[in-house]
């Protein structure tokens, strides 16, 4: 397309005028988001490849070599039972990331379900949101410990407990997004055309709430890693013999004075994993929808 303005020929192209920047282009242009993603991918690789990249059996007891410092045989040293810490931290990634990932999935599904129901059916709204308020008022960490005490230390129970704590947050966010989307012209138009609620919810409303759910999901992933570690540290999470980052820190606490590295390495692993998720989540939020800064 060209046009003469004054004595100059001005050319433009509609694609140039409205540069369509896709969300992943924005994401990959942000250096911190790429670093975050790289950290997350690295951690996932470590977890998946654990049997191949570990140097020892993570549960093999070698009491003769207990509490050794980091060295060529044991890169991160050994714990109070002579177990190789490097291998334990590597295997710990499996448990911690698995718990975080599954909790993210469950809270997203439950959050969308309750959020959409509350926003779409006004008679449910008051009931559901008061229940969510009530659940959010309960002190999260204490409820987690109490639930774990009742249910017993098992990985599946950690997942149930964390999902119960974090799902209300996602539900609140989904509800607020759906309340906006359902009033939009295209949704109103669909309703006027006689499209049924279920059709509108799946076709128009759900795609609208995915970005905030995905972003919130990355943060819940990180929170879950932190809370799982805290629960396991207190002995109310993953059973102590299973290597998770929290259980390793917990066993190292007793020997903190003389052999601080037992707790050091799993702690660094937690920080790296959560840092990666938070950086990636921030980048994703800015790329998907900058306005989300207000809610997330």
């Amino acid at each position: 397309m060209n046009e003469k303005i004054g004595d100059q020929n001005v050319y433009w192209d509609e694609e140039v005028l409205v540069p369509e920047v896709r969300w992943y282009e924005t994401l990959f242009r942000s250096k911190v988001a790429v670093i975050g993603l790289a950290l997350v991918v690295f951690m996932v690789f470590v977890a998946v490849l654990a049997p191949w990249i570990s140097t020892h059996d993570p549960v093999y007891l070698d009491v003769m070599n207990r509490l050794q410092g980091p060295g060529p045989d044991h890169w991160f040293g050994t714990d109070e039972f002579g177990r190789d810490l490097y291998s334990r931290v590597i295997y710990g990634a499996r448990i911690s990331l698995f718990v975080g990932f599954v909790v993210m999935l469950i809270t997203s599904v439950l959050g969308i379900l309750f959020g959409v129901l509350a926003a779409y059916y006004r008679f449910l709204d008051n009931i559901l949101m008061r229940i969510m308020d009530g659940l959010m008022a309960l002190p999260g960490m204490l409820m987690a410990i109490a639930l774990m005490a009742v249910l017993g230390p098992k990985v599946s129970n950690v997942i149930i407990t964390l999902s119960a704590i974090y799902a209300p947050r996602t539900a609140r966010i989904v509800r607020s997004v759906v309340l906006v989307v359902r009033e939009m012209t295209f949704v109103q138009a669909a309703r006027a055309l006689g499209v049924r609620d279920v059709g509108i919810i799946f076709k128009d409303v759900l795609p609208g709430c995915l970005p905030p759910v995905i972003v919130q999901g990355t943060f819940i992933f990180a929170y879950s890693i932190l809370t799982e570690a805290a629960l396991s540290f207190l002995g109310a999470g993953v059973p102590p013999h299973i290597p998770s980052w929290g259980t390793i820190i917990s066993s190292g606490q007793l020997f903190m004075r003389d052999v601080p590295w037992i707790s050091l390495f799993p702690g660094i692993a937690i920080v790296l994993a959560c840092l990666g998720l938070n950086l990636f989540g921030d980048g994703l939020r800015d790329a998907l929808d900058p306005q989300l800064r207000e809610v997330l």
């Binding site: 990180a222 932190l226 805290a230 707790s263 050091l264 702690g267 937690i270 920080v271 840092l275």
Partner: peptide, 22 residues
């Protein structure tokens, strides 16, 4: 600020004990 939201509180506590007490 990012480190702050990524560090487990209890682990930070253990390290502070190690540094400032021990």
């Amino acid at each position: 600020a990012l480190l702050g939201v990524s560090i487990p509180t209890f682990w930070l506590g253990l390290n502070l004990i190690q540094a400032f007490s021990i």
